[in-house]
């Protein structure tokens, strides 16, 4: 554990909490892509199946459980509790165009052709593009509430901080994972346009 990794995890946790609080406090999920949230739930489910097979640390297990619970909690709020506020009409990104290539790629490029390893690889690939329906929705409506912008900024920062963590680990521990690094860079690059607007305009869309 190094400072970049810790800040990355905190940023990730913060993003999830911001989103849950926004929906809970406003009793509305307007402006949030349910499709991105479903993709994130698939990502965490596929990746954290190792909760049953390997133990790393209490921190690791607890964070995994928190991410899973928060993700399914968000889906419950969006699709059941505050369903009426869900903005169907603007959430139209075809997620099969993300899922199918990720399935194929994870079958072709992985560290080991075993079920858990392929699911882990699939989750890494899918996570890198899971935000696209949300970014598409923001660009389609041409605006995002400031709280949604803070959510996106925290969520984008998380993988950017992980890149610093991977650079640190490469030099300090000679540890690296090509799949995670390449997908993490792709994921961060997708946020660049948003980062630019967030920093220069303060609030995206205004």
């Amino acid at each position: 554990m190094n400072v970049f990794r810790l800040l990355g995890d905190i940023s990730h946790l913060l993003a999830i909490i911001i989103l849950l609080l926004k929906i809970w406090k406003t009793r509305s999920c307007a402006g949030i892509s349910g499709r991105s949230q479903v993709l994130f739930a698939v990502v965490y489910t596929a990746r954290y199946l190792d909760l049953f097979t390997s133990y790393i640390s209490a921190y690791n297990s607890i964070m995994k459980l928190v991410f899973l619970a928060a993700s399914y909690g968000t889906i419950y709020l969006m699709f059941i509790k505050f369903k009426a506020s869900y903005d169907h009409n603007h959430d139209t990104f075809r997620i099969e165009f993300l899922i199918l290539p990720c399935v194929l790629l994870s079958l072709l490029i992985n560290h080991e052709f075993s079920p858990l390893e392929i699911l882990w690889t699939f989750s890494i690939y899918l996570e890198s593009v899971a935000i696209l329906p949300q970014l598409f929705m923001v660009s389609k409506t041409g605006e995002a509430e400031s709280i949604t912008s803070h959510y996106l900024f925290a969520l984008g920062s998380y993988r950017a901080l992980y890149i610093l963590n991977w650079i640190y680990r490469y030099y300090a521990e000679s540890h690296y994972d090509v799949i995670a690094i390449v997908a993490g860079i792709v994921q961060t690059v997708l946020y660049c346009d948003f980062f630019y607007l967030y920093i220069t305009k303060g609030i995206y869309g205004q």
């Binding site: 990794r5 995890d9 640390s57 690791n60 080991e112 992980y162 690296y176 994972d177 799949i179 995670a180």
Partner: peptide, 10 residues
């Protein structure tokens, strides 16, 4: 791609 990840990250 020979290096198997340790999966200690989230």
């Amino acid at each position: 791609l020979n290096m198997k990840s340790e999966k200690d990250e989230l």
